[in-house]
Amino acid sequence: MTIPRDFKSIQNVFAVIEILRTIDDKAGLVCAVGDLSRDFGFDSFVVTRLPVKEQRVRPHVLLHSGWDDWLYNYDRSRYYLADPVARKCFETVEPFSWAEAAGGKLSPEAVKIMDDAASRGMQRGLAIPIIDHCGFHSVVSLVGGPDDLQDFEKRALQLFGYYVHGAAERIARIQATSATLSERELDILHLLACGKTMGTIGKELQISVETVKTHVKRARVKLQTKNVPQTIVEAMRSRQLLV
């Protein structure tokens, strides 16, 4: 099939791929990806690594827009291991619509996940599976999209998804470098993640509660987080904290 070089949305994909190389902050990347996705009729997106042995996805999310509530619900409901979209990412390297993943015989749990997503306005979407340079699986998932997405548009978005993932990984590395937690900060976050209070932690480490708070505050500043739970999640997502 001949692909029209003058097709504006396709030209935009190639222009944005060039721009992605120069973006080095998350907000800029979210903006660029959101703008181009909307050109194709997609409302929101997520870029995430796909863990093999874990049930939670949020610590592995690299980038998203408009997925806060769904990701919270997704992890709380332990959807990941039964999610047909996530499972299909381990079976194919081709982009696929969510409807394709939901085709065939689904488990009751998988049906529940698709229904729950649909009830939250996520009826359809496009998944772009990725195997990265280390052999790990990731996905760029776009919500929405037109019924009549052309094959060449899908393939252009596949390429776009690859570059978005590359940029998200690059930015994650930059942030990880500038946000390396000290051993003490990690110890305290680990104990907080285990459910201990700051007072208990202070006694255990033989330091004052104020010192514990100072360590937590430093970790929050480094990770640019707003509260303790978010700090723990971010420390896990950046693979510094293993709980």
Binding site: I130, I131, D132, H133, C134, Q158, L159, Y162, H165, G166
Partner: peptide, 14 residues
């Protein structure tokens, strides 16, 4: 093969 592209990107080959 298209699915190799993320590897080349990840390798820093631009």
């Amino acid at each position: 093969e298209t699915w190799w592209m993320p590897r080349f990107i990840g390798f820093g080959m631009s």
